[in-house]
Design a protein around this nucleic acid. Structure first.
Lengths: 186, 186
DNA sequence: GCCTCCATGTAACACGTTACATGATTCG
DNA sequence: CGAATCATGTAACGTGTTACATGGAGGC
Protein backbone atom coordinates (compact mmCIF):
# COMPACT_ATOMS: atom_id res chain seq x y z
CA UNK A 1 0.00 0.00 0.00
CA UNK A 2 2.88 2.38 -0.57
CA UNK A 3 3.00 2.92 -4.30
CA UNK A 4 -0.05 5.23 -4.40
CA UNK A 5 1.55 7.35 -1.70
CA UNK A 6 4.85 7.44 -3.54
CA UNK A 7 2.96 8.76 -6.57
CA UNK A 8 1.07 11.32 -4.53
CA UNK A 9 4.38 12.53 -3.13
CA UNK A 10 5.91 12.86 -6.58
CA UNK A 11 2.83 14.63 -7.95
CA UNK A 12 2.79 17.03 -5.03
CA UNK A 13 6.35 18.01 -5.83
CA UNK A 14 5.30 18.66 -9.41
CA UNK A 15 2.22 17.73 -11.51
CA UNK A 16 3.30 15.27 -14.19
CA UNK A 17 2.26 12.79 -16.81
CA UNK A 18 2.72 9.04 -16.44
CA UNK A 19 5.95 8.88 -18.35
CA UNK A 20 7.40 11.87 -16.57
CA UNK A 21 6.59 10.16 -13.29
CA UNK A 22 8.32 7.03 -14.47
CA UNK A 23 11.45 9.03 -15.23
CA UNK A 24 11.39 10.81 -11.92
CA UNK A 25 10.99 7.48 -10.15
CA UNK A 26 14.01 6.23 -12.04
CA UNK A 27 16.00 9.27 -11.07
CA UNK A 28 15.27 9.66 -7.39
CA UNK A 29 12.42 7.80 -5.75
CA UNK A 30 13.65 4.42 -6.95
CA UNK A 31 16.43 4.68 -4.37
CA UNK A 32 13.88 3.46 -1.85
CA UNK A 33 10.80 2.59 -3.94
CA UNK A 34 11.09 1.47 -7.53
CA UNK A 35 8.19 1.14 -9.97
CA UNK A 36 7.72 0.39 -13.65
CA UNK A 37 5.62 2.53 -15.95
CA UNK A 38 2.86 -0.09 -16.03
CA UNK A 39 2.51 0.02 -12.29
CA UNK A 40 2.38 3.79 -12.43
CA UNK A 41 -0.30 3.99 -15.12
CA UNK A 42 -2.42 1.43 -13.30
CA UNK A 43 -2.11 3.34 -10.07
CA UNK A 44 -2.79 6.73 -11.68
CA UNK A 45 -6.10 5.34 -12.92
CA UNK A 46 -7.02 4.14 -9.45
CA UNK A 47 -6.02 7.37 -7.77
CA UNK A 48 -8.09 9.37 -10.24
CA UNK A 49 -11.11 7.14 -9.68
CA UNK A 50 -10.68 7.48 -5.94
CA UNK A 51 -10.81 11.26 -6.30
CA UNK A 52 -7.31 11.83 -4.93
CA UNK A 53 -5.84 13.27 -8.13
CA UNK A 54 -7.29 14.75 -11.30
CA UNK A 55 -6.29 15.18 -14.88
CA UNK A 56 -5.17 18.70 -15.69
CA UNK A 57 -6.86 20.33 -18.66
CA UNK A 58 -4.18 20.69 -21.31
CA UNK A 59 -2.82 24.20 -21.42
CA UNK A 60 -1.04 23.56 -24.70
CA UNK A 61 -3.77 22.21 -27.01
CA UNK A 62 -3.20 19.20 -29.25
CA UNK A 63 -0.05 18.21 -27.34
CA UNK A 64 -0.17 14.60 -28.37
CA UNK A 65 -1.74 12.30 -25.84
CA UNK A 66 -0.02 13.49 -22.68
CA UNK A 67 -2.14 13.45 -19.58
CA UNK A 68 -0.93 15.56 -16.70
CA UNK A 69 -2.21 14.90 -13.21
CA UNK A 70 -2.29 17.03 -10.09
CA UNK A 71 -3.07 16.16 -6.48
CA UNK A 72 -6.48 17.14 -5.11
CA UNK A 73 -7.00 18.25 -1.49
CA UNK A 74 -8.31 14.78 -0.64
CA UNK A 75 -5.05 13.34 -1.95
CA UNK A 76 -2.93 15.64 0.16
CA UNK A 77 -5.04 14.76 3.20
CA UNK A 78 -4.61 11.04 2.54
CA UNK A 79 -0.87 11.48 2.23
CA UNK A 80 -0.64 13.43 5.48
CA UNK A 81 -2.69 10.76 7.25
CA UNK A 82 -0.47 8.02 5.85
CA UNK A 83 2.67 9.69 7.16
CA UNK A 84 1.49 9.12 10.71
CA UNK A 85 -0.40 5.84 10.20
CA UNK A 86 1.11 2.91 12.12
CA UNK A 87 2.61 0.38 9.72
CA UNK A 88 5.13 -2.22 10.81
CA UNK A 89 8.46 -2.54 9.04
CA UNK A 90 8.56 -5.43 6.59
CA UNK A 91 10.65 -8.32 7.86
CA UNK A 92 14.06 -8.74 6.29
CA UNK A 93 14.01 -10.65 2.99
CA UNK A 94 17.40 -11.28 1.52
CA UNK A 95 18.30 -14.00 -0.94
CA UNK A 96 22.02 -13.72 -0.27
CA UNK A 97 21.57 -14.62 3.39
CA UNK A 98 19.44 -17.54 2.31
CA UNK A 99 22.22 -18.63 0.01
CA UNK A 100 24.73 -18.52 2.84
CA UNK A 101 22.50 -20.77 4.85
CA UNK A 102 22.19 -23.16 1.92
CA UNK A 103 25.97 -23.02 1.51
CA UNK A 104 26.31 -24.28 5.07
CA UNK A 105 24.68 -27.50 3.79
CA UNK A 106 25.86 -27.97 0.21
CA UNK A 107 29.20 -26.19 0.39
CA UNK A 108 30.21 -22.65 -0.48
CA UNK A 109 31.61 -23.33 -3.96
CA UNK A 110 31.25 -20.20 -6.05
CA UNK A 111 29.85 -18.10 -3.24
CA UNK A 112 32.98 -16.03 -2.70
CA UNK A 113 32.73 -14.67 -6.23
CA UNK A 114 29.12 -13.70 -5.65
CA UNK A 115 30.00 -11.93 -2.41
CA UNK A 116 32.68 -10.03 -4.22
CA UNK A 117 30.27 -9.02 -6.97
CA UNK A 118 27.69 -7.85 -4.43
CA UNK A 119 30.35 -5.85 -2.65
CA UNK A 120 31.10 -3.99 -5.86
CA UNK A 121 27.39 -3.26 -6.44
CA UNK A 122 26.92 -1.93 -2.93
CA UNK A 123 30.05 0.15 -3.26
CA UNK A 124 28.66 1.62 -6.45
CA UNK A 125 25.37 2.49 -4.76
CA UNK A 126 27.25 4.05 -1.86
CA UNK A 127 29.35 6.18 -4.20
CA UNK A 128 26.20 7.38 -5.91
CA UNK A 129 24.65 8.38 -2.58
CA UNK A 130 27.79 10.17 -1.47
CA UNK A 131 27.87 12.11 -4.72
CA UNK A 132 24.29 13.21 -4.21
CA UNK A 133 25.07 14.19 -0.64
CA UNK A 134 28.00 16.36 -1.68
CA UNK A 135 25.93 17.93 -4.44
CA UNK A 136 22.66 18.61 -2.62
CA UNK A 137 23.36 18.79 1.10
CA UNK A 138 26.49 20.82 1.68
CA UNK A 139 25.14 24.23 2.62
CA UNK A 140 23.77 25.01 6.04
CA UNK A 141 20.55 26.48 4.62
CA UNK A 142 18.56 23.75 6.28
CA UNK A 143 14.83 24.00 6.00
CA UNK A 144 12.94 21.18 7.64
CA UNK A 145 12.30 19.63 4.22
CA UNK A 146 16.05 19.67 3.54
CA UNK A 147 16.83 18.00 6.82
CA UNK A 148 14.25 15.26 6.25
CA UNK A 149 15.52 14.51 2.75
CA UNK A 150 19.08 14.42 4.01
CA UNK A 151 18.00 12.00 6.70
CA UNK A 152 16.58 9.67 4.07
CA UNK A 153 19.81 9.84 2.13
CA UNK A 154 21.85 9.09 5.24
CA UNK A 155 19.74 5.97 5.79
CA UNK A 156 20.79 4.75 2.36
CA UNK A 157 24.42 5.64 3.04
CA UNK A 158 24.60 3.82 6.32
CA UNK A 159 22.77 0.78 4.98
CA UNK A 160 25.19 0.42 2.09
CA UNK A 161 28.16 1.05 4.35
CA UNK A 162 26.86 -1.63 6.64
CA UNK A 163 26.48 -4.17 3.83
CA UNK A 164 29.98 -3.47 2.58
CA UNK A 165 31.46 -4.02 6.02
CA UNK A 166 29.52 -7.25 6.42
CA UNK A 167 30.51 -8.51 2.97
CA UNK A 168 34.16 -7.87 3.84
CA UNK A 169 33.75 -9.89 6.98
CA UNK A 170 32.04 -12.63 4.99
CA UNK A 171 34.83 -12.68 2.43
CA UNK A 172 37.41 -13.12 5.21
CA UNK A 173 35.37 -15.96 6.64
CA UNK A 174 35.11 -17.71 3.29
CA UNK A 175 38.63 -17.03 2.16
CA UNK A 176 39.62 -15.96 -1.36
CA UNK A 177 37.51 -17.08 -4.37
CA UNK A 178 38.57 -20.70 -4.06
CA UNK A 179 40.13 -22.07 -7.28
CA UNK A 180 39.94 -25.64 -6.06
CA UNK A 181 38.97 -27.10 -2.73
CA UNK A 182 39.10 -30.58 -1.35
CA UNK A 183 35.91 -32.41 -0.49
CA UNK A 184 33.41 -30.87 -2.98
CA UNK A 185 30.50 -32.55 -1.29
CA UNK A 186 30.58 -31.90 2.46
CA UNK B 1 12.89 -17.36 -7.25
CA UNK B 2 14.11 -17.93 -3.72
CA UNK B 3 11.27 -19.68 -1.97
CA UNK B 4 11.87 -23.06 -3.63
CA UNK B 5 15.50 -22.88 -2.56
CA UNK B 6 14.54 -21.93 0.97
CA UNK B 7 12.37 -25.04 1.06
CA UNK B 8 15.09 -27.24 -0.39
CA UNK B 9 17.44 -25.96 2.31
CA UNK B 10 14.96 -26.70 5.07
CA UNK B 11 14.20 -30.16 3.68
CA UNK B 12 17.89 -30.97 3.39
CA UNK B 13 18.32 -30.18 7.06
CA UNK B 14 15.46 -32.55 7.82
CA UNK B 15 12.71 -34.18 5.72
CA UNK B 16 9.37 -32.72 6.77
CA UNK B 17 5.69 -32.31 6.01
CA UNK B 18 4.18 -29.03 4.85
CA UNK B 19 3.03 -27.96 8.26
CA UNK B 20 6.31 -28.87 9.90
CA UNK B 21 8.08 -26.75 7.29
CA UNK B 22 5.74 -23.86 8.05
CA UNK B 23 6.66 -24.09 11.71
CA UNK B 24 10.35 -24.28 11.04
CA UNK B 25 10.07 -21.26 8.78
CA UNK B 26 8.32 -19.43 11.58
CA UNK B 27 11.03 -20.41 14.01
CA UNK B 28 14.20 -19.72 12.11
CA UNK B 29 14.17 -19.14 8.36
CA UNK B 30 11.62 -16.35 8.62
CA UNK B 31 14.39 -14.14 10.02
CA UNK B 32 15.45 -13.57 6.45
CA UNK B 33 12.74 -15.25 4.35
CA UNK B 34 9.18 -15.59 5.59
CA UNK B 35 6.47 -17.72 3.99
CA UNK B 36 2.90 -18.74 4.76
CA UNK B 37 1.71 -22.32 4.69
CA UNK B 38 -0.15 -21.76 1.43
CA UNK B 39 2.99 -20.64 -0.30
CA UNK B 40 4.79 -23.67 1.05
CA UNK B 41 2.17 -26.19 -0.08
CA UNK B 42 2.02 -24.63 -3.53
CA UNK B 43 5.78 -24.76 -3.82
CA UNK B 44 6.05 -28.33 -2.50
CA UNK B 45 3.74 -29.40 -5.31
CA UNK B 46 5.89 -27.66 -7.91
CA UNK B 47 9.14 -29.03 -6.52
CA UNK B 48 7.72 -32.53 -6.55
CA UNK B 49 6.56 -32.18 -10.14
CA UNK B 50 9.95 -30.82 -11.11
CA UNK B 51 11.54 -33.94 -9.67
CA UNK B 52 13.59 -32.09 -7.06
CA UNK B 53 11.88 -33.63 -4.04
CA UNK B 54 9.73 -36.69 -3.46
CA UNK B 55 7.11 -37.81 -1.03
CA UNK B 56 8.44 -40.27 1.53
CA UNK B 57 6.47 -43.49 1.92
CA UNK B 58 4.89 -43.35 5.38
CA UNK B 59 6.87 -45.34 7.89
CA UNK B 60 4.10 -45.12 10.48
CA UNK B 61 0.99 -46.37 8.65
CA UNK B 62 -2.39 -44.64 8.92
CA UNK B 63 -0.82 -41.50 10.38
CA UNK B 64 -3.53 -39.19 9.21
CA UNK B 65 -2.82 -37.33 6.02
CA UNK B 66 0.73 -36.20 6.66
CA UNK B 67 2.98 -36.11 3.65
CA UNK B 68 6.69 -36.03 4.33
CA UNK B 69 9.07 -34.90 1.62
CA UNK B 70 12.77 -35.43 1.11
CA UNK B 71 15.23 -33.83 -1.29
CA UNK B 72 16.31 -35.85 -4.33
CA UNK B 73 19.84 -35.62 -5.78
CA UNK B 74 18.56 -33.29 -8.50
CA UNK B 75 17.26 -30.99 -5.77
CA UNK B 76 20.59 -30.89 -3.99
CA UNK B 77 22.33 -30.17 -7.28
CA UNK B 78 19.93 -27.33 -8.05
CA UNK B 79 20.53 -25.85 -4.61
CA UNK B 80 24.31 -26.05 -4.99
CA UNK B 81 24.07 -24.39 -8.39
CA UNK B 82 21.85 -21.64 -7.00
CA UNK B 83 24.35 -20.85 -4.25
CA UNK B 84 26.84 -19.69 -6.85
CA UNK B 85 24.40 -18.32 -9.46
CA UNK B 86 24.75 -14.56 -10.02
CA UNK B 87 21.68 -12.73 -8.76
CA UNK B 88 21.68 -9.01 -8.04
CA UNK B 89 20.59 -7.73 -4.64
CA UNK B 90 17.06 -6.33 -4.66
CA UNK B 91 16.99 -2.56 -4.49
CA UNK B 92 16.02 -1.06 -1.15
CA UNK B 93 12.26 -0.82 -0.63
CA UNK B 94 11.27 0.84 2.57
CA UNK B 95 7.96 2.52 3.28
CA UNK B 96 9.30 4.46 6.26
CA UNK B 97 11.83 6.28 4.10
CA UNK B 98 9.06 7.05 1.66
CA UNK B 99 7.04 8.47 4.50
CA UNK B 100 9.90 10.71 5.53
CA UNK B 101 10.06 12.05 2.02
CA UNK B 102 6.30 12.66 2.04
CA UNK B 103 6.67 14.34 5.43
CA UNK B 104 9.07 16.81 3.84
CA UNK B 105 6.07 17.99 1.80
CA UNK B 106 3.01 17.63 4.03
CA UNK B 107 4.62 18.03 7.41
CA UNK B 108 5.91 15.49 9.93
CA UNK B 109 2.88 15.45 12.23
CA UNK B 110 2.67 12.07 13.92
CA UNK B 111 5.87 10.77 12.39
CA UNK B 112 7.93 10.97 15.56
CA UNK B 113 5.62 8.50 17.27
CA UNK B 114 6.00 6.09 14.35
CA UNK B 115 9.77 6.38 14.47
CA UNK B 116 9.69 5.62 18.15
CA UNK B 117 7.50 2.60 17.59
CA UNK B 118 9.79 1.29 14.85
CA UNK B 119 12.78 1.78 17.10
CA UNK B 120 11.17 -0.46 19.69
CA UNK B 121 10.42 -3.15 17.09
CA UNK B 122 13.99 -3.11 15.78
CA UNK B 123 15.32 -3.23 19.33
CA UNK B 124 13.15 -6.26 19.95
CA UNK B 125 14.48 -8.02 16.85
CA UNK B 126 18.03 -7.18 17.86
CA UNK B 127 17.52 -8.60 21.34
CA UNK B 128 16.17 -11.77 19.81
CA UNK B 129 19.21 -12.12 17.57
CA UNK B 130 21.62 -11.48 20.43
CA UNK B 131 19.89 -14.13 22.51
CA UNK B 132 20.28 -16.63 19.70
CA UNK B 133 23.92 -15.68 19.31
CA UNK B 134 24.66 -16.23 23.00
CA UNK B 135 22.79 -19.53 22.93
CA UNK B 136 24.12 -21.07 19.71
CA UNK B 137 27.45 -19.48 18.92
CA UNK B 138 29.48 -19.25 22.07
CA UNK B 139 31.80 -22.26 21.85
CA UNK B 140 34.87 -22.31 19.65
CA UNK B 141 33.84 -25.59 18.01
CA UNK B 142 33.52 -23.89 14.66
CA UNK B 143 32.79 -26.11 11.73
CA UNK B 144 32.41 -24.28 8.44
CA UNK B 145 28.63 -24.66 8.67
CA UNK B 146 28.72 -23.01 12.10
CA UNK B 147 30.76 -20.12 10.84
CA UNK B 148 28.43 -19.54 7.89
CA UNK B 149 25.33 -19.57 10.05
CA UNK B 150 26.94 -17.23 12.52
CA UNK B 151 27.77 -14.91 9.65
CA UNK B 152 24.12 -14.81 8.64
CA UNK B 153 23.13 -13.99 12.18
CA UNK B 154 25.70 -11.23 12.38
CA UNK B 155 24.20 -9.69 9.24
CA UNK B 156 20.87 -9.47 11.04
CA UNK B 157 22.50 -8.05 14.14
CA UNK B 158 24.35 -5.33 12.32
CA UNK B 159 21.34 -4.42 10.18
CA UNK B 160 19.14 -3.96 13.22
CA UNK B 161 21.86 -2.08 15.06
CA UNK B 162 22.17 0.17 12.06
CA UNK B 163 18.44 0.89 11.92
CA UNK B 164 18.33 1.70 15.60
CA UNK B 165 21.20 4.15 15.27
CA UNK B 166 19.54 5.80 12.30
CA UNK B 167 16.16 6.00 14.03
CA UNK B 168 17.83 7.70 16.99
CA UNK B 169 19.37 10.21 14.64
CA UNK B 170 15.99 10.73 12.98
CA UNK B 171 14.30 11.25 16.33
CA UNK B 172 16.83 13.92 17.21
CA UNK B 173 16.22 15.61 13.89
CA UNK B 174 12.46 15.58 14.36
CA UNK B 175 12.47 16.45 18.03
CA UNK B 176 10.25 14.83 20.66
CA UNK B 177 6.79 13.51 19.67
CA UNK B 178 5.37 16.97 19.06
CA UNK B 179 2.23 17.65 21.15
CA UNK B 180 1.40 20.78 19.12
CA UNK B 181 3.30 22.62 16.48
CA UNK B 182 2.71 25.91 14.75
CA UNK B 183 1.97 25.98 11.04
CA UNK B 184 0.26 22.62 10.51
CA UNK B 185 0.40 22.95 6.74
CA UNK B 186 3.61 23.39 4.71
C1' DG C 1 7.40 6.91 -46.78
C1' DC C 2 9.94 4.96 -42.99
C1' DC C 3 12.15 4.76 -38.68
C1' DT C 4 12.60 6.28 -34.14
C1' DC C 5 11.05 8.16 -30.06
C1' DC C 6 7.21 9.57 -27.16
C1' DA C 7 3.28 8.22 -24.51
C1' DT C 8 -0.29 5.37 -23.00
C1' DG C 9 -2.01 1.24 -22.49
C1' DT C 10 -3.41 -4.40 -22.57
C1' DA C 11 -2.35 -9.07 -21.35
C1' DA C 12 -0.45 -12.64 -18.90
C1' DC C 13 1.99 -14.29 -15.33
C1' DA C 14 4.76 -14.89 -10.72
C1' DC C 15 4.71 -14.18 -6.04
C1' DG C 16 2.59 -13.10 -1.73
C1' DT C 17 -1.60 -12.50 1.32
C1' DT C 18 -6.08 -13.48 3.28
C1' DA C 19 -10.08 -16.03 3.92
C1' DC C 20 -12.22 -20.09 3.88
C1' DA C 21 -13.03 -25.42 3.12
C1' DT C 22 -12.32 -30.19 4.25
C1' DG C 23 -11.46 -34.19 6.76
C1' DA C 24 -9.06 -36.65 10.40
C1' DT C 25 -7.47 -37.05 15.21
C1' DT C 26 -7.58 -35.90 20.10
C1' DC C 27 -9.45 -34.52 24.33
C1' DG C 28 -12.97 -33.40 27.63
C1' DC D 1 -21.01 -36.12 21.28
C1' DG D 2 -18.81 -31.65 20.60
C1' DA D 3 -14.89 -28.65 20.34
C1' DA D 4 -10.24 -27.94 19.42
C1' DT D 5 -6.28 -28.99 16.88
C1' DC D 6 -3.73 -31.05 13.06
C1' DA D 7 -2.91 -31.10 8.21
C1' DT D 8 -3.73 -30.17 3.60
C1' DG D 9 -5.74 -27.69 0.39
C1' DT D 10 -8.95 -24.06 -2.88
C1' DA D 11 -10.21 -19.49 -4.16
C1' DA D 12 -9.71 -14.80 -4.78
C1' DC D 13 -7.13 -10.92 -4.81
C1' DG D 14 -3.17 -7.34 -4.69
C1' DT D 15 1.29 -6.12 -6.14
C1' DG D 16 5.12 -6.43 -9.15
C1' DT D 17 7.28 -8.10 -13.68
C1' DT D 18 7.65 -8.90 -18.59
C1' DA D 19 6.25 -8.76 -23.18
C1' DC D 20 3.75 -6.74 -26.47
C1' DA D 21 0.23 -3.32 -28.80
C1' DT D 22 -1.23 1.16 -30.46
C1' DG D 23 -0.92 5.54 -32.27
C1' DG D 24 0.97 10.21 -32.72
C1' DA D 25 5.10 13.43 -33.65
C1' DG D 26 9.47 14.52 -35.60
C1' DG D 27 13.53 13.70 -38.42
C1' DC D 28 15.84 11.85 -42.64
Amino acid sequence: MSLPHAILTALLEKPSSGLELTRRFDKSIRYFWSATHQQIYRELGRLEQAGLIRELPQQLPSQGQRKEYEVLPAGRAELAAWVARPEDPKPLRDALLLRLRAAALVGPQGLAAELHRHRALHQQALDEYLTIERRDFTADRTTEADRLQHLVLRAGISLETNWIAWLDEAATELGPPEPFTADPHR
